[in-house]
């Protein structure tokens, strides 16, 4: 029972992070029908920016809640700006072009960001400062939940609840959902589709930056190819929930996190990723629209 609860806690922590990153994939796919391959790299860029703030601040004094908050804010702002620039430079000119051109542009952006990180911070693994967060942990039904885990789970849930409320209960959120269903119809209804697309490239990367920094804080490391590893997992989560479907991405993230955590208990870790990919392919073949169904209209 203790191990079960422990894996549940671990799975929820990682799942929350996956969900935060998956939202960026799914929102962009919703409005542009584009797999934003650069999203995972943007998230890890956020982790590096946060890390730089943390290590810079550490030199000056004692790490505290304020410093951590500063790191998150810096990462969020920087990555939101990077997301908007990405859209303007690499995607906007290709909106009417062949889909494959946009796919290759996205892949190029991914390579650019990943290797940009490598050029700035170097190819080595960076270790996060050890005394960043309190070492407190609590015992729950024979398992332990650390302060970091609790923080990740609570903040992830809060952010997702906020996003859910925003998308479902505000005028602008309705515009986002409308643009995802049919861009042309949305435009005819007076919705500024450019603003909607722009907003998606602010919200998605901002949430992703939090997710990226969570990864760094949780695993206490960051390296430049990390965007690919975690980005792909988050992307699988988005597909699992039904690409383009915002609640789906949340559910998919949590389920994938739990799946990974429990698989780790029963399968050797070297085969664990293979099983995740088999799961992905099985879903694609058996139920390509994901668990909650894709919210993407297809023109016939």
């Amino acid at each position: 029972m203790g191990t079960f609860i422990q894996q549940l806690i671990n799975g929820l922590t990682v799942g929350g992070v996956y969900a935060l990153i998956a939202l960026g994939y799914t929102m962009v796919y919703g409005v542009l029908r584009l797999i934003n391959f650069a999203h995972g790299d943007l998230c890890i860029l956020g982790a590096f920016i946060g890390l730089t703030v943390l290590t810079g601040g550490l030199g000056g004094g004692h790490p505290g809640a304020a410093l951590l908050a500063l790191a998150f804010i810096a990462a969020i702002i920087a990555i939101a700006i990077a997301g908007v620039l990405l859209e303007i430079i690499a995607y906007r000119p290709l909106r009417r072009a062949d889909r494959l051109a946009a796919v290759v542009s996205a892949l190029g952006a991914s390579m650019l960001i990943e290797n940009g990180i490598m050029l700035i911070w170097g190819p080595d693994v960076h270790v996060f400062p050890p005394d960043l967060l309190p070492k407190t942990s609590w015992r729950v039904a024979g398992a332990a939940i650390s302060f970091t885990q609790l923080m990740i789970i609570l903040i992830s849930c809060a952010l997702m609840a906020a996003l859910y409320g925003f998308v479902n209960h505000t005028r602008f959120g309705t515009a986002i959902r409308a643009a995802a269903i049919d861009q042309d119809a949305a435009r005819l209804m007076g919705i500024n589709v450019n603003r909607v697309i722009g907003s998606v490239f602010v919200i998605g990367p901002a949430l992703g930056a939090v997710g990226g920094l969570f990864i760094g804080v949780y695993y206490r490391e960051a390296y430049f190819t990390m965007g690919w590893t975690y980005g792909l997992s988050a992307f699988i989560a988005a597909i699992l929930g039904g690409i383009g479907n915002i609640p789906g991405a949340m559910l998919g993230g949590v389920l994938l996190g739990l799946f990974n955590a429990f698989a780790a208990g029963y399968v050797s870790s070297s085969w664990q990723d293979a099983i995740t990919f088999l799961l992905l392919i099985a879903i694609l073949i058996l139920r390509p629209t994901g668990l909650l169904g894709e919210r993407v209209a297809e023109k016939v």
Binding site: V104, G108, I113
Partner: peptide
């Protein structure tokens, strides 16, 4: 790969 990334975006655009 940094240059490849830039080139891929530039050519597509």
């Amino acid at each position: 790969y940094f240059v490849f990334g830039i080139a891929m975006i530039a050519v597509m655009v």
